[in-house]
Design a protein around this nucleic acid. Structure first.
Lengths: 205, 205, 205, 205
DNA sequence: CATGAATGAGAATTCATTCAT
DNA sequence: CATGAATGAATTCTCATTCAT
């Protein structure tokens, strides 16, 4: 029991350090000082810097995977909207409780080589796949403009979300979560939805 | 004369190394081997690793600043569109001739501390300011939906562009430049322009 | 009672580990894993790695001291031969039942500093003393060539025995014990015995 | 030029340290302190402790290989004796000029794993092969007793030489080189030579 | 007695930077 | 100017030993 706690403590401290200094500048010394633990203790729980980081990364990515659900098109336009909102909300809420990891992911996890990049890119790949599928379903159901290039549009959507998160990580002043999500949704919905649908929905949102 | 050439040569070689290995993994040894220059020679031209990188970064950011021009709303809707396209084209074209720097910027430049982050964020800040101004002008001229939250929308726009560039840096298969730019434009125009305007422009694009 | 058993168990396991990995490469972790005992338990019975090894060494050397008896020259030439054979047999038999310790002694025990070297050298010193005395007695009784330099000859004898043991420890193919002992004896007897005696004994062996 | 000198200096200092403390107890710190050189300098010349040691070992073994020549039986009994003496003299003389390496080889090189053992055992294997061939040639020419088991006898010969060297490495008082060699020769010759030959040579030696 | 988590001294190694030639 | 050998601070990692439960 104690052991699991210590482990958690070390993970938290490591995250704190990674968030403050970045992966490369972070040293084991930093981590153990933060955790008030002896050098050897660290190695009792983790193989090294790479390993703690990987664990934190895995943890985060799988938490995010849990938050993000495929969009089920059968529930109709407003159902789709609700699902998109739920996904966004899940991601933003997760990061609000994990500002440290947000900073790390947004500013360090890329360019680490070590196979971290691969994990992260695989994650983005999964996101893109979900977005693309939703777009294609949308086009078939005539909800989404048929002209749109799904490939590029999905990048735009992903990018719009990432950028907002990035600015939050950088401590830029960003409107509060509720508003941000609404706006991201509005933005992308406007960009995507077919004219017919926009007219119908016009009154609501 | 010779001196300036050598300096340039070193900068190019350093960029090659940074692009291949990333800032941290790049060593002076890598750079001087690539440049076929003695260790001491490097320090004759630069204060150190940090300094070469900074110079490359400054160079790139100011080149980009040159490519990107304020949007002059006085030229009317299609003029604005053309200006946006010109900006996008400038940025994409610049990076197509500097894949190395694209990789560096997209995967390493953030999270380096060292003040590099600050420079990059200032640059993004300038971009955002331009975008925001354009949006505000657009709203005043009733080209852009008034409902839109300019703050968030400008992040979305920036993000959509960055993401496409990011995927290009990661060697993901992305449609070719001309199409990508068109699509980004279309996407953002749809997202932003007022319904009236969309109808008018509908025929063109 | 239990205590003595555990102690013995630990010694055996430590020996196993030392034989497999050598003194330096052997870790306490190896020993306690082999013994299926907790870390602290080990230190309950021994002061440390050094101490277990020392105990194993002492044990072996005193067992060997017991096997090796002074040569009593009063029993005549064939009696001397029998005593030499008995000594050799004792040593070889001991090691056949303790291959682990043979490996340790032959390949690690020297060069450990720690005072182990001293113990081992004292043991070899005792052996040499016995051999030397036998040679000197032999010379006085005109059994051993008078020309022979006792100092060097005793080293040669010791060396011939050690080398055979060394090769056995290294798993080299060596004829079986009975033959090896016979041959070592023959070799050294030929080297040492006076011509007169050789002629007399010629018929027997 | 300077570089080769430094390298040599480091090798010498490393040998000094290895001879004093043994391979395992020797630290890079010891070596660089002895050499009065900075930490990094050491790594400029060698990959690590293992590598310096390997170089010293290779150097020694190939020097020894050079000293030791096959015995050409065609030059007759006294020629063979002279060749044996030359070999012994070569080995002993080499070690008198390299006491450090003698200590290392005799007390540490075994049990190092790392592949050092293999090298050493291969060397001993080569020696044994030379000795065995000489014995077999001798038996065919009726110089060496036919009864003798060549396998064991060659171990005895090797052992007698190694033991004398070992005692010298341990700083035991051993008669001086000339005498030692003579005695080792006498010892082994007596053990080996056929009775006929012994009688003939009897007068000479 | 037994346990095993915690400790921290010590060893190896890297690499940006300096400086004598 | 150019060179590249030398430097040493900083970092990671190991493992014998201790001690609270």
């Amino acid at each position: 029991m104690r052991k699991a706690e210590r482990r958690r403590h070390l993970l938290n401290c490591a995250l704190k350090v990674f968030a403050r200094k970045g992966y490369h500048a972070a040293s084991i010394t930093d981590i153990i000082k933060t955790a008030k633990v002896a050098r050897g203790t660290f190695y009792l729980y983790f193989e090294g810097k790479r390993a703690v980081f990987e664990e934190l990364l895995d943890e985060t990515l799988s938490a995010l995977d849990t938050q993000i659900k495929r969009i089920d098109p059968s529930r109709g336009p407003s159902g789709v909207l609700a699902q998109m909102e739920a996904n966004l909300d899940g991601v933003f809420s997760y990061f609000m409780g994990n500002r440290g990891m947000l900073r790390v992911l947004m500013s360090e996890a890329v360019g680490l080589d070590n196979g971290f990049d691969q994990k992260l890119n695989e994650f983005y790949g999964r996101l893109l796949a979900i977005i693309k599928m939703a777009l294609e379903d949308g086009q078939q159901m005539d909800l989404v403009k048929s002209k749109i290039n799904v490939e590029v549009a999905s990048l735009c959507i992903l990018g719009s979300i990432k950028e907002v998160l990035y600015q939050q990580a950088m401590d830029a002043k960003v409107p509060k979560q509720q508003i941000v999500i609404e706006e991201i949704l509005r933005y992308n919905v406007n960009a995507l939805l077919s004219e017919d649908l926009l007219k119908k929905l016009g009154g609501k949102k």
